[in-house]
């Protein structure tokens, strides 16, 4: 599955802000961390604001802050702000898809998309950040001290 650039920027922004919900960061701050376009990210942040996933404060020291519930918002909720990967709509028709081979190939592609959707829909912001921290701690600890089931 290939996500659009805006979707990827949206995921970066929400996850970066949710790491510390008290912290305010500007589009320029976040763009510098991920080495991405600040102009494009500013548009993405406005979309996230309309979706009530981030709050913005104007003026000196202003910026964006995560305003969702990290234990409820999933990666799919963020993706849905920018693109429809639900698979419910008719979608763009692809050349050759009505042929026997085209239909068989579509079955395989749908299987992959179903798994991707189930994965995005089951990972909350909190889970992703928690898993990232667990992995960092695990990588830092010597093998003998690692949790055996994690």
């Amino acid at each position: 599955m290939k996500l659009q650039k805006a979707t990827r920027y949206g995921l970066y922004a929400v996850l970066e802000l949710a790491r510390d919900p008290e912290r305010q960061l500007s589009a320029t701050d976040i763009a510098a961390i991920y080495d991405i376009s600040a102009n494009h990210l500013a548009k993405v942040l406005r979309d996230l604001g309309r979706a009530r996933l981030v709050d913005s404060a104007r003026g000196v020291g202003g910026g964006y802050r995560f305003s969702g519930n990290a234990k409820r918002v999933t990666l799919m909720d963020i993706i849905a702000v920018f693109e429809d990967i639900s698979g419910d709509g008719p979608g763009a028709r692809e050349e050759g898809e009505d042929t026997e081979i085209g239909q068989a190939l579509n079955l395989v592609l749908s299987e992959i998309d179903d798994i991707a959707r189930a994965t995005f829909g089951s990972i909350t912001i909190d889970t992703l950040l928690k898993t990232m921290r667990w992995r960092q701690e695990r990588d830092r600890s010597p093998p003998a001290n690692r949790l055996t089931i994690d």
Binding site: S122, I123, T124, T131, T148
Partner: peptide
């Protein structure tokens, strides 16, 4: 043992979210 597994229906988001929150992938 050093590993735990489970199996879930793909559309079972409630349980999938729970097990993911426990670090399962």
């Amino acid at each position: 043992v050093r590993l735990v597994r489970t199996m879930l229906a793909r559309e079972d988001q409630l349980n999938m979210s729970f097990f993911r929150s426990q670090g399962m992938m």
